[in-house]
Structure formats: structure tokens, C-alpha cells
Design a protein around this nucleic acid. Structure first.
Lengths: 103, 103
DNA sequence: ACCATACGTCGGGATTTTCCGACACGTCAA
DNA sequence: TTGACGTGTCGGAAAATCCCGACGTATGGT
């Protein structure tokens, strides 16, 4: 049932939600106000993030504060790892070239 | 026109294609044989990867060899970076705990 | 010249995603 | 208790995704 983490990151709204939660927990209305989008739409994005294990909800009075749960992102990091040296090599080659150009 | 890199990674077939190309370039039929999928389907996945800048094609006789182009994955790495320390802290906390359990 | 091979792309069907308005439920304040 | 607030979820529409068979176009072998 645990939804795909990569699928969760495929949507820019969900990525922005995770980035917003990076600065601390927030209630739903607060999060929804960040987007030009109806509240139910944001609520459903949060549901998908919840199913992916990326956020956790804490009921606080009549509102629910959402917390970031970055652990599942480790799967993305792991998948990315074999490719990482590949593009870092390119970047290093570029910076070496620039150093050579302007010593 | 450059398709979303995150969207490109949202599909398991496309992730497997990139992983396969990690071992070197391959022609389309070779790649298609890795999946229980029609060749046009794989061809369209490759088109999307091409639009995302993640692969490059080299015509070689009557076949086209696809090469990995990992550079756009840097965007994913960059996006992931602010979260990275978060889950690494959790892992370190876990390993510290294990070290403590069995000194 | 002929035919098989390797591939891209198109038309279309099935499924999934994304979004909204409407409604239901619990919480708090008066 | 009554009513407003904060939120989840449902029904359904619009759009995107995913896949396939069919066709078109090169290239290479005979």
C-alpha cells in the first residue's frame, strides 16, 4: 500500500509541500495558502505524501499539523548514488577547465 | 520543452532503463528485451528520457545506441540535498544506538 | 532490385492523475 | 446548545499517462 516515493516527488506541488515542511510543522490551511489551489486538492496531495510515508500528521486542537518525515527519501538517494559520481565527474572536469582558462 | 526530470523518474521502467545504461550504451531492441513490454512502449519511454536530457542516441548502422546522460540528475541531487542531513541524522542516531547496545 | 531488420511515430483505448464543489465530522468559542 | 472553523473524503470532470497494433522510413544483406 506504501505509495511509490518517486511518484510522490513527480508533482511540483508535493515537492513544494515537502520543502515548506523543511522549516517546521504546519497546519493544512497554512500549507494550502502557499498555492493557487483549492484546499481539498492540497489535502489530497498531503494524503499521497502520507501514504508514501513522507509526512506525518499531529492533531492539535481542531487543526492537524503536518510534520516532515524525510526517511523514505533515502530510497531516492540510494537510487541516485550510482549516477552521482557520473555527473560530479562532469562538473569537476568543467571546473578544472575553468581553472585552466583563468589561472 | 525539456520535460520534468522528476516526472521521468516516476516510472519504474524508465528508472530501469537508466540503470541498464549505467553499464554502457545499448541499442533499442537490446533494451526492450529487458522488459515484458512491447518495443514501441520502450521506444516511447526512451523518447521521454531523451526530452528530459537523460539519454542521448547515437545512430550506428541500422540501430541506435542509447547512451546515459546523467547530468540532469544533478537537479534531483540538489533538490534532495536539504533533506539529506535529515535522514542521515536518523541513520547515525540508529547506528549510535546500536553501538551503545553492543559496545 | 528485393526483402528483412531496427527503429520512430501515430491513432486510439484503458487507466490514472489532478482538480473542484459539496458534504460530513469533530473541535472550540460564545 | 448553537454556530463557525479546520479538515477529510466523495462524485465526477478534464487531462495526462501508459500501452498496443499498425504503418512509415531508413539501413544492410542477398
Amino acid at each position: 500500500m506504501a505509495t511509490d516515493v518517486f511518484g510522490a516527488l513527480a508533482n511540483p506541488v508535493r515537492r513544494a509541500l515537502l520543502a515548506a515542511l523543511l522549516e517546521g510543522p504546519r497546519p493544512v490551511n497554512d500549507l494550502a495558502s502557499l498555492f493557487d489551489l483549492s484546499r481539498p486538492a492540497v489535502s489530497e496531495h498531503l494524503q499521497l505524501l502520507r501514504q508514501a510515508g513522507l509526512v506525518r500528521e499531529e492533531p492539535r486542537g481542531r487543526q492537524r499539523w503536518y510534520h516532515l518525515d524525510a526517511a523514505p527519501l533515502a530510497e531516492v538517494g540510494d537510487w541516485l548514488h550510482p549516477f552521482e559520481h557520473y555527473w560530479r565527474d562532469r562538473l569537476r572536469a568543467l571546473s578544472d577547465l575553468l581553472d585552466e582558462e583563468r589561472p
